[in-house]
Design a protein around this nucleic acid. Structure first.
Lengths: 209, 209
DNA sequence: CTTGTGACCATTATGTATTTTAGTCACAAA
DNA sequence: TTTGTGACTAAAATACATAATGGTCACAAG
């Protein structure tokens, strides 16, 4: 379960104390385990402490709050999605196909988080509600990925060049947002089947030169 | 306050007892007043009864549940939005301009509900969460309005005709949904400024023949 | 210096006794 | 028949005392 949580030094999250310390990884590992099994709320910091055999106080040498630990776990989750989407996009040759894959794999990966790691999804959802840094970063990265595809399509002549790149990026992102944002996803279930196909078609028609 | 709640016989909502009865209107009136002032949850059915000078039991001769009353009030709210949007759309001549106005006035009207009748907005939001009939009907009506514009644009030659009308309708609706659906709106505040303009432009580019 | 902790406090969560509330029904007056 | 209600119950909301939790800090050991 919990998928391949391999490298931990991911997004820059609010932390403190010695960086790259072994105990920090132990905390993240234990937190991933506990949060995904019992949920963020039901896990006490002292539970994590017990799990790694240290006192609760020691945990606060590495993270300045429980939320900071949650941010770390959340960032890892979202980074997994991001990696998956990046990979899907890179597997395509033309910008239009890249865009289609961004839509499709983005929705798929988000849905998988919801159905297979519900507790972690809940962290992501509340992180989105409270605008945690991890979610802001995730959204920015997805927009960057999108912008790169659009830019590449403009250079290759696949996409129109009149509309300002930033406006197009934002617009297309807004079309995607209900399915990528963890908080919104749960209100869009009725459409997750049809949306990726239809919306990427709509957007591609809009982008044609 | 509460805006011009004029005619009450709006959407077909689950009701019972003699139709067109004077007391039914009194109930709706009192409910509108109480719900918008104190909120749906904080208003007891017996409060409404007291307000109109009847017993609580009598109210249940006209509505089969408190939720049914809420549905009525919610439907009225949404109908107000719908009327406003219809009016804005009818004030335009060409289908593209109608579409722009649908976007713009839809967002404006929804935002006004949020900021000026917060308690009523909350009813609409929870109605959306629990998929009350009033919201389903509202969404269907908005889609119908959209479909008519698209169809008109196809006939006038303003819009492309290759994509199936129903697919286009759904796609464009999905683009709008985050700003029209009361539940989603509150998570899209950051974009309500830019979204109507940018998204209608994106959609119009997509619709061009 | 780094590693590590128990004791401590303010805030939040939780269980529970108590009260409100939604909804029904038998029945009465007109 | 139509209009109208008090009395009732099961479920939900509330209030409150109690326990658990997040977070800090002074201090100790190596």
């Amino acid at each position: 379960m919990v998928r391949g949580m391999t490298q931990m030094k991911d997004y820059p999250t609010s932390a403190r104390g010695p960086a790259g310390h072994e105990v920090r990884d132990q905390i993240v590992l234990a937190a991933t385990e506990h949060f995904s099994r019992y949920g963020y709320e039901k896990t006490a910091v002292s539970d994590l402490a017990k799990a790694i055999g240290y006192s609760k106080a020691y945990i606060y040498k590495f993270f300045e709050s429980k939320q900071a630990i949650g941010e770390m776990i959340c960032a890892n989750c979202l980074h997994e999605i991001e990696k998956e989407v990046s990979q899907a996009v890179n597997g395509a040759d033309t910008p239009p196909e890249k865009l289609r894959r961004l839509f499709k794999s983005g929705v798929e990966a988000s849905l998988r988080l919801f159905f297979q790691d519900r507790k972690l999804y809940e962290i992501a959802a509340s992180a989105a509600t409270e605008r945690w840094q991890s979610v802001v970063t995730y959204e920015n990265r997805m927009q960057s990925l999108l912008r790169e595809i659009l830019q590449e399509g403009r250079l290759s002549g696949d996409f129109e060049r009149k509309t300002p790149l930033d406006e197009t990026t934002l617009s297309v992102y807004l079309v995607l947002r209900p399915y990528l944002n963890p908080l919104l996803l749960q209100y869009s279930f009725d459409y997750t089947e049809a949306a990726p196909g239809h919306l990427s078609s709509l957007v591609l028609r809009s982008l044609s030169p």
